[in-house]
Design a protein around this nucleic acid. Structure first.
Lengths: 225, 225
DNA sequence: CTCCGTTTGTAAACTACCCGACAATTCTTT
DNA sequence: AAAGAATTGTCGGGTAGTTTACAAACGGAG
């Protein structure tokens, strides 16, 4: 029964569609499963054996810390996303951790070495996986160029739009997002100070473009944003 | 003879070490080879069939252009590096091109589809390639965080250090780089305005940390930089 | 219901960097 | 050698965004 559960979790991830039943079962045997609560840190680069994680429920943030203790949010991980040592190599120098944002999350994980074995034995999975990593990279590049050429307001707006389209509930032009981020989080994502983020959010609210509170964000008309 | 040349070019790239002779020959048959001169544009995303390129001689820059025509240098490609549709998927929306920086470059290329075939038939190559893409991503993330938390001066210094270590000629603590970049290029790489880059470079020179001219850059003592 | 930690709101001083404008220098071409 | 093009140097004015600092509001724990 418990194994069945894990099986199911992997099965419905798009990356594993190319695998047949027995291959999935094989990966399931080696996979671990756990849940965690809000605020917990569930992953630390440069600790333990390198692993790949699959988030099944909830949301987490990947935070990286530089030498001076500066924290930036690298990524928001959602249900169905992979995270961890995705580049298949544990990098000593990069320091990052994953923190739970929602009330509860469930994740399953497997050792990097086991995953590598599977990739070698399944070339087409390796190919899909490479494309997957490539896609991640592309998304990064995109953020990167936003940071360079756009101002904080534009970055905030495009983040909100993105968020809404990704996991908001749509009713015509109206989107409702269940908000698990603080304004500090949002500021760190769009790379600005908390004060600027607050200012801009209130500004958008004054113009009736969005309605913001701690529980949810409503976008009246996404085309006007 | 000509085929032999191409064979050699692929053979000495670290990524292709796992392939045996016949596999390399196979890739060689499908690979194209050409040279180009300074200023030429040799690659354009969203044109032609998607390809992967291997730079054999010289240097090129990958420039991306956003909607407003803003140009940023994404990457400097050096001898031995791969570029092109590395993520194995041609992205319609991203607009980038490659321009030759040195007097002459020679490159070889192969179709993405052919490369994919090869990957599927060579699982260990697929794995190496995935790690390779992962590494690229990591380097990106690093630049990205520099952009966020460091000021222009720090970014310039870390770029120069990087450059020196990557391709400078070392004599003790002294490094000499053959300079194929204009100050405008450098500015675009570290994401600042040309004026600021000029200012900072002159400042470093006044402090005798570097000696700069159009042909070469000398770092007196890299540990003091 | 009250208390306390977290999150949000607001204001003023300060600054790194951008932008425009123009001059000076160096390389290229003829 | 001279003209033209590209690159580099320099100067203020303007500003988006940071930083510091404090007050207000919210929300969970007891």
């Amino acid at each position: 029964m418990y194994d069945e559960l894990k099986y199911w979790y992997l099965r419905d991830h798009k990356l594993f569609l190319t695998l047949n039943m027995s291959q999935i079962k094989q990966l399931c045997i080696i996979s671990g499963f756990k849940t965690a609560k809000k605020g917990e840190v569930i992953y630390f680069s440069s600790s333990d054996l390198p692993r790949i994680y699959l988030l099944k429920k909830g949301n987490i943030k990947i935070v990286s810390v530089d030498e001076e203790g500066n924290e930036t949010i690298k990524e928001i991980i959602q249900k169905g996303d992979l995270f961890g040592e995705l580049s298949l190599e544990n990098d000593g120098d990069v320091n990052e951790y994953a923190k739970v944002l929602t009330d509860e999350v469930s994740i399953c994980s497997f050792l990097l070495s086991d995953f590598e074995d599977l990739l070698v034995r399944n070339p087409s999975l390796a190919l899909s996986y490479t494309k997957f990593v490539g896609l991640k990279m592309k998304r990064f590049k995109n953020n990167y160029s936003n940071l360079v050429s756009k101002d904080a307001r534009t970055r905030l707006i495009s983040f909100i739009k993105d968020w809404a389209e990704r996991e908001g509930i749509q009713e015509g032009k109206k989107y409702t997002i269940s908000n698990y981020l603080t304004q500090t989080d949002i500021a760190q994502i769009i790379c600005t100070s908390r004060q600027t983020a607050t200012l801009l959010l209130n500004e958008l609210e004054e113009k009736n473009l969005i309605y913001y509170n701690r529980k949810e964000i409503t976008i009246e008309d996404i085309s006007k944003l």
